[in-house]
Structures are given as C-alpha cells and as structure tokens.
C-alpha cells in the first residue's frame, strides 16, 4: 500500500526566500518529487490557519510552509509569527488525526536550492510512509 501511494503536498512559499529558493532549484536543474503543488504568498505571515485547514479539507496529504530564515524575513519578523501560528495549528491538526509530520514548517533561503529539493524529498517520503490522511472527529479519543 505505502509503495504505491503518491501523496499530494501543498507548499506555501514566501516570495522573497523560499519561492526564490524553489526557483533556484529549478534553475539548477535539481529534481525533486512531483508531488508538490506550490502556492505563492508574499510572506509566511499571510498564511492564515484556515489556508492549511482548507488544504487538508480539500484532500491534501501534507502541507509545507516555507519561509525565510530567522532574521532574514523581508518584512522583519513575520516568519516568527508564522512559526508561532504553526505550533498552535499542529495541536489542532493532531486532534483531528492529522499527524504533525503532515504539516511541516521550515526555513529555506533564496540561495538554498539543494535544501529546497531535500525538504520536498523528505516530506514526500514521510507522507508516503504515513499513507492517506485518516480524519477523525474531535472527541473520538474519549470514546
């Protein structure tokens, strides 16, 4: 089963660092799994928790949020805010049976083409292992 499962991963990439890092992976011809679908935001600070929930609700098997490295944010420190939101969001996701590996936050700079490809590769492998999302109703644990 896990051998044939091909997950779909939605990647929210910030314009200034991670999207540029992905561009660079392309320019350098560094292949990575075709499972990623990219969505550009100007900053990870724009990523509303609802975007992530929406992606899972619409059938994503994983959500990848990539921002600038700490201290490098084009908008000063909004990546920290995104990081804070992500931590809270993981708790909500886990309550719904969405494992934390399915929603990954990481930093990729505009120069880190290889890192970008590596993160996508790792995430794809992790989710292949996990298999499809198995949503459960909140409170199911109590029964």
């Amino acid at each position: 089963m896990t051998g044939t499962f091909e997950p779909t991963i939605v990647g929210f990439l910030c314009n200034w660092c991670s999207y540029a890092g992905a561009d660079k992976a392309g320019a350098a011809g560094m292949p990575y799994p075709p499972n990623l679908r990219t969505i550009r935001v100007m900053c990870t600070g724009r990523i509303d928790a609802q975007f992530v929930l929406k992606a899972f609700a619409e059938g994503a098997d994983g959500v990848l949020i990539l921002g600038c490295h700490p201290g490098d944010c084009h908008y000063k420190e909004q990546n920290y805010r995104a990081l804070g939101r992500h931590r809270l969001l993981l708790r909500v996701l886990e309550q719904h049976g969405i494992e934390r590996q399915r929603c990954r936050f990481d930093f990729v700079s505009a120069a880190e083409a290889a890192e970008f490809a590596a993160v996508v590769g790792e995430m794809t492998a992790d989710i292949r292992q996990l298999g499809p999302v198995n949503l459960r109703a909140v409170g199911a644990d109590a029964q």
Binding site: I39, V41, M42, C43, G45, R46, I47, D48, A49, Q50, F51, H74, Y75, Q78, R81, R85
Partner: peptide
C-alpha cells in the same frame, strides 16, 4: 506582507491581491 490579514480574528482586514477568496 499580509500578516495583519491573517491575524485579524474578525476577518475585517483584506489583503489586496491576496484576498481570502483568491487564496
């Protein structure tokens, strides 16, 4: 940057060109 848009608990702030609807 849109951080306030995502932070607003009332959905009162819209980010032009990166609106909730478009996203």
């Amino acid at each position: 940057c849109g951080t306030c848009v995502a932070a607003c608990p009332s959905g009162a702030i819209a980010g032009h060109h990166f609106t909730d609807d478009a996203m």
